[in-house]
Write a protein that binds this DNA or RNA. Sequence first.
DNA 1: GTCCATGTTCTTTA
DNA 2: CTAAAGAACATGGA
Length: 269
Amino acid sequence: MPELPEVQTIVNTLRPRVVGRTIASVSLHRQDIVTPPETDLSRYLTGHAISGVERRGKRIVFELDNGHRFYIHLGMTGRLSVQPASEPLLRHTHLVLELGSSGELRFTDPRRFGGVWWLGDCADGDSDMGPEPLNLRPQQLLGRLRKTTRAIKNALLDQRVLAGLGNIYIDESLFDAGIHPLSRACELSPDQVRRLNRAIKSTLRRALRHRGSTLRDYRDADGEAGGFQKLHRVYDREGQPCRRCRTPIARIVLGGRSTHFCPKCQRFS
DNA sequence: GTCCATGTTCTTTA
DNA sequence: CTAAAGAACATGGA
């Protein structure tokens, strides 16, 4: 469910409700969502205040008053919500942090592709991730894309190339840039890369303005759905007319994922 | 029963 | 050896 716009919206809604709060107690219903596996989360978290919440790629990074950090990744179906303790727990709620008068921070994830990663005082846990797409220079993008012969769609799915894009926003950005998803990353012209860089930023900014896309599960920390799915131009629109030229949107499978594009607006080159 | 799903990581192939 | 493709993970909805 979560790509950069959804994760950022969750962070924005979470922040005012958890920053400054002290974790009174921890209940972990499944140890197997925690990495490293033997981490004693309860011992590390109980009694500490949350001093900050930030997004890095698709990760939600929490900082404690002692400088220790951990992050939550939502995988495909993960949700974070802040609710009064009196609200019934959703099924598949794996972690609950008791925050006093603020209520409880709950992590729910049916498919369990998500989880909690303990970083402790480790300075960086993100050396394996690419740069943030919202402050990216076209020259940087060109430098990273030039190193791989993969289809541009597959290259952009790789979080080591760019951090935060996923299946929806890649399809939407490639449409905006007029680039065919099968184009080899290393063969894009400097002009195409400039257009792609602009398209990624404008797509993400528009999605952020609409608080992300809710296809099924996604909700922000207040339980609100996003609205950007109504503005998708290609994602999940197979067979429907292109909003620019009326040609039916095509769907192919790339990197094991559905890939949507307009065969006329995104010519193969 | 079938196929599909907003993601990542491990394994296999070339 | 490396890069890229494919399978696997777990659950639920159509």
